[in-house]
Structures are given as C-alpha cells and as structure tokens.
Design a protein around this nucleic acid. Structure first.
Lengths: 236, 236
DNA sequence: CCCACAGTTAGGCGAGTGCCGAACGGTCTC
DNA sequence: GAGACCGTTCGGCACTCGCCTAACTGTGGG
C-alpha cells in the first residue's frame, strides 16, 4: 500500500467504528457535548467513550474544552462538518439524534435560569451574554473582553465589579444546557450578585435553579426572551 | 451506537484499510485496473487483493467487468470519485500513482496496435472506435449498436460482416492498455480481417502486436493519430 | 468536610480482519 | 494439448481493536 493510501485510511478509520460515527453525527448539531452524554447516546461505557474521544480529538476531527469536571467536545470546524454531511448524505434519515438531549432538559426551571458558581447560567445567562454582545458591550475578537461601552453600562446600572485576587475580569463559560457561552469572571459574578440583591432573580430552594422576575429586563434583554424565562405561576 | 452511525461507519470502513484506500486512490484516474495490477501496486498477494475487491464491489464503491481471465474494476461512478477526491483532499500529494502503469506500457508496439482475439486493440483499436463514434457510425445510447450510417460505411469499404453462430454483431471490449473500449463482435472481427487482408496492419512475429501502415487512414482516423501509430523505422 | 459525580487508567477478554501460502478452476497462447 | 497466467477458495496465523469492570483522580455542591 502507498503512503497516500495509508493517510486516507487513517481518516476513514476514525469514522469506521459505529460508536465514533454516532458521536460525529450527533455533533453535527454544532453543539458541545459532554463525554457522558455521548456515552449514553452511543450506549457504551464511559471508559469506552473516553478513548473514542481521545482518538477523534487527537485525529483532529474534534476539539475539546475542559471545564471543571466536564469534557466538552465538538466538531473541529465547519469544513469538518461539511465533510461529514457529505458522507452522511450517502445514508438516509437523521433528526432523532439532535433531540435526545434537548428534549429532557427543556421546559425545566434549571434550564431556564440558575447559578453556575457565582454567575448566571441557563437560558438567562446565555441570553444576557447575547444581549450584551449585540449592544457592543463585549468584544469577542480576541478571547473575551469588556468594551469601554460595557464599562460605562455597568457603572450606569450601579454594578461594582470586584477585582480582587487577580481574578479575570470577564470570562466565557460554556453553558451546560444551552451549550453556548455565558458570562463568568468578576463581571459575571457582579451581574449575578446585582440581580439577586435586587430580587430580579431569586433562588428556588433545593437547588441552583432561579426564579426569574420581569425586572431582569433591566439588563436589556429582549422582551420575548424575558417572557420565555417566566413560565406560568403553576411552577415552583 | 445508532443505526445511522453504523451505516456511516460501513462506508468509512471500506476506506479504513491502507490497501483498499490505495486501490481507490489509484482508481481515481478513472481507468479500469486488473486485480493483479492492483495487487502489485498495493504490494499484497493476489488472494488478498481479491478479497479487498470483493468488499469494495459488494459495498458499491467499485464496479467490475469480467473479461476472459481478467477482472477489471473501476470506480462506481462520478459521484463516488467526487467523494473520494474530497476525502483525499485532506491529504497532500498524489500524482505518482497515476503514472505507475502508463509509464511501462507506453511507447510499446504492443500498446500501439495489436489483436485482441480476432479484433483490433491498443491505441489503434480505441482510436478506431472513437473515430467511428465521432462520425455517427456507432450508437452508444443503449449498449452499443451500429447505426444505418455505420452499415453503409462498412458496405462502402467492401467489408463483409460474418453473422454466423448468433454472435453479437458489435460489442465493446475494454482495452487492456488504454482502458477505454474498442470494438469487438462480428463487426470488430470484420474490421480487423479487412485491415490484415489489405496489409493496413501486419503481425509482428512472436506476439499479438501489429505493425501499422499509413493505409489505416482509410478507416477514417485522424492524421495525427495515424502518425502516432507509426514510430520510426528503427522499431520492429 | 464529605458525598456525588465526570472522567481516566489499567487489565483483560473476544471478535473481527488483514495477510499469506497452497491448491484449484478457467482462459488464453503457441 | 501443454504451459503460462489470472483469479479464487481454503485454512490458518497474528494482530488490532472495541468493549467491559474495577479502581483511581479530581471537581463541585451542600
């Protein structure tokens, strides 16, 4: 066999296993998944999925983000996704995969709003990050940073950022349910503290979930989002 | 693992072996190769390549044509080739593969013109089929057939087609060196007989190779091709 | 501080598979 | 018909690889 053949085979070998292929197809939704979720989806043990992910990551098909005790993986890039789509087009139906996770975590107070350490997470956290980005308060061009406008906005709201201990002023943190970044760091904590102090959100006893009041709109969130964050009074 | 994953893995598995990948890359030149040639290229034994080809053919990636004691395989279609190109694009350099066979069989009397059973083959045979196709003497729309114009052309040349024994009047036959079809069947045989009888071509002793005279142009071949078929008088 | 939990490492088992040599059938050439 | 040659079938060997259980590390929540 030739060197080129061996190289091509190397790529193919990554997808040549049913479990790894399943993982890649699931990741076609563009989100980041944890190892355990993928293990559950593919119906294999955690050690098994761990090794598969090692292969896919070191092979360059996937990238990973380690966060706390979680290992998030997603497709390396759009070109990778494109290639996979092309291959997957050879086979019929998909769909069901994309729902498996979303179905269980949706419509849940925990998924809507909660604390993550000392900052806001869930739909609320992500929506807040989105809104701030939209209004030019955050600059993502190199990592993540607060813009001068962002600084001014915080001052206007009367939010004081605690800058002790060399903690990064602002950080992005991958949201567990949304799989998109929300805000952490000193700024994230300050926003959360501010919301709690003013009762824009209140802790739901027995967990990290938060009850959201309409006042969070003061953060500049779109009306539609705020409404989604406040389900009927029937729920806890 | 899911059903889709298993399906995708099935396709990938075909390319997940260095030998099979090498075969597929070689076949990217669009030509048909014999099993032995591929075995030599991939540096494996004939039994081994035989099984690999079985897999690739039954998997739908390759198609085969059995002809005499040869088994010709080529890529199933343009879409297959496209997919392979896409995958191969992930890896650098190619080239060397495409030349391995052409290099040795070129510039050879055998490759220029010879008999194949009872009809003409080599560059001459393929060029003849091309020329006849170009002038509307052959219809390829459903298999291969002689057009009314083709019938008339044969009569004009004084060529009698032997239609005994229910032999197909005209057939296409994959050329060993050119890897493109030339003409066989009763018509192919008649053309060859005619050329030999009029000394447009003559047998070179010790093989099937033919020496080509300029008279073959009477078949309506392009001048350029006829010149290529007649190398310097130095050769046998 | 302790428990719960995500993930990893280690070890081992079993299935699949790529490969070859030997023997065989079929086809062409002379 | 003899010999050469292409391809296949068969048996067997060695190795890879996917998987699990058990045990361990590290992180986070209360």
């Amino acid at each position: 066999m030739t060197a080129e053949g061996e190289e091509l085979a190397g790529w193919a070998r990554m997808l040549a296993d049913g479990t790894r292929a399943t993982v890649c197809l699931a990741l076609l939704d563009g989100r980041a998944w944890t190892a355990s979720e993928l293990a559950r989806l593919a119906k294999v043990s955690r050690p098994t999925i761990s090794e598969h992910l090692n292969q896919l990551v070191s092979g360059g098909l996937l990238t990973e983000v380690r966060q706390g005790r979680h290992r998030y993986v997603k497709l390396a890039g759009p070109d990778t996704a494109e290639l996979l789509e092309g291959l997957a087009a050879l086979t019929p139906r998909r769909e069901e995969v994309a729902n498996s996770l979303a179905a269980v975590s949706k419509r849940d107070a925990f998924a809507r709003a909660r604390t993550c350490y000392d900052h806001l997470a869930g739909k609320l956290g992500v929506a807040l990050a989105d809104a701030m980005t939209e209004r030019g308060l955050i600059d993502w061009s190199d990592g993540i940073a607060l813009t001068p406008e962002g600084q001014a906005w915080l001052e206007d709201l009367g939010i004081e950022v605690d800058v002790r201990r060399g903690r990064p002023a602002i950080r992005s943190c991958l949201d567990v349910t949304e799989r998109r970044p929300h805000l952490a760091g000193a700024v994230g904590a300050a926003l959360c503290r501010h919301a709690l102090r003013n009762d824009w959100v209140t802790h739901i006893p027995g967990g990290r979930a938060l009850k959201v009041s309409g006042s969070v709109q003061a953060f500049g969130l779109p009306v539609r989002v705020v409404r989604e964050l406040q389900p009927g009074p029937r729920e806890t």
